[in-house]
């Protein structure tokens, strides 16, 4: 049942992407019940996920970036 803080952090990160198993989450819950540091980390980590979702960030694909770069080089010559 007991896990280290490193393991707790990894499970916490996985759970941000819904990739932690139920057993892992139970272990994490137990760990943060007794470990204040990991409790704070989990709270902040979850908040970061929320912020990322709210931000609606979009990125250009590598393909689009390559095209932009080519276009830029073309006008440089």
């Amino acid at each position: 049942m007991k896990i280290s803080c490193e393991q707790a952090a990894e499970i916490c990160n996985k759970s941000q992407y819904r990739e932690a198993s139920l057993m892992e989450i139970i272990k994490l819950k137990y760990h943060i019940f007794i470990c204040k540091t990991c409790k704070l980390f989990t709270t902040k980590n979850t908040k970061l996920t929320k912020l990322c979702n709210e931000s609606k960030l979009q990125i250009l694909s590598e393909e689009e970036k390559a095209k932009m770069k080519a276009e830029l080089e073309k006008s440089n010559n």
Partner: peptide
């Protein structure tokens, strides 16, 4: 300029 796309494209986008 040769690093613009890499460094700033997503932000400007």
């Amino acid at each position: 300029p040769d690093k613009w796309v890499e460094l700033h494209a997503d932000y400007l986008f």
